[in-house]
Design a protein around this nucleic acid. Sequence first.
DNA 1: ACCTGAACACCGTTCAAGT
DNA 2: ACCTGAACACCGTTCAAGT
Lengths: 211, 211
Amino acid sequence: MAKGITRERIVAAALDLLNDKGMDALTVRALASRLGVGAPALYWHVRNKQELLDEMSTFVMRRVIQALSEIDPGAGWRDAMAAYARVLRSEYLKHRDGARIFSGTRFSDPSVVTAKDPWLESLTGAGFSLAEADDAIDLITAFVVGFVIEEQERNRPRDDDPERYSLEGRDEWLGEGADLVKAAGHLRDDGDQRFERQLGVVLDGLAARLR
Amino acid sequence: MAKGITRERIVAAALDLLNDKGMDALTVRALASRLGVGAPALYWHVRNKQELLDEMSTFVMRRVIQALSEIDPGAGWRDAMAAYARVLRSEYLKHRDGARIFSGTRFSDPSVVTAKDPWLESLTGAGFSLAEADDAIDLITAFVVGFVIEEQERNRPRDDDPERYSLEGRDEWLGEGADLVKAAGHLRDDGDQRFERQLGVVLDGLAARLR
DNA sequence: ACCTGAACACCGTTCAAGT
DNA sequence: ACCTGAACACCGTTCAAGT
């Protein structure tokens, strides 16, 4: 049963292929062969490759929305925003280069945008103005996107120059001086801990707006 | 004098081409023809296209470093970090999709990394621990990257569906409900102001770490 | 040392033709 | 309605050959 190709199966296979081989290997031909079909067959279900990429983005964001809808919204704004940040990060982390590829994309689905509404409600209910609440969501989003882009870049399997990301190799590569940069490199801990600390800083900044 | 192709001229022309036509149109052939030369000629000066992209990233980051070196470092940590954030944003904004393309890239130049040193010194001098200082720089960087990615995506010249980004068209597209999302859309102001407000929130969060 | 011309394998996309 | 086979214009890259 190689047939029965559908829009959803194409998107799912595309996300699998992205994770397996990376963005450069995500070609229409490779995707089609993974689905047991010729390349032109995909053009019956999808207008072009750009529309496929848009569908992939929408799919990822729908999973974010889904995960968010399972969060208790009455937990207070700080826990709610922290939960939003963690969900967004973990969904991006599920896909190779997820943050770079799926952030800031145009959504073909209004429900992805309207899902912001309960969060605005929670924030304004806590005492933020509507403008502050909108800023808060954008700020958390921007932080997560920027953090995970850097995180996924650092963790990317690299063919060349692997010693530049080991501590000793890095110190050598940096050359003379820059002692604080080197020392900070040695202090650097787990991605989860760094994320939680930096998220805490942002939430503290938001809390300061409530005084 | 079509000849005299050099590595620097190639990178400069590539950045021009990126701004003119976008990433998809940045092909080796188009770049070569812009330099008045055949496509294979570029392979004498550059190993492959990936190396060219890396050189472009390094060039952009070198300009960030250059701009940062002209900032008064004795101005206090808060002004210094704000200046860093503004410089990073304005350099990304100089190139189409600059934040998405040039963020989180591996640098072929150690001086880009060692330039962090004076900033770590300024922050630790102000009372931050080294780990906190390192977090602070990463956090500001992540915020700027995420903010500008969204900003450049929103401002991108779009062929399709232009009314989805006008306010009336957007309200219609959103459908029933989502009143807060719509109202927030109408409140939305200039990118510069939103950037300054959100940057202020992050800096407040950092300041809270000093108590 | 630096560049050209021709070629290779591959890409996204179209389209007539099959079922 | 859904898919194939063949084709088109284009891509990154290589390589012998020119100067």
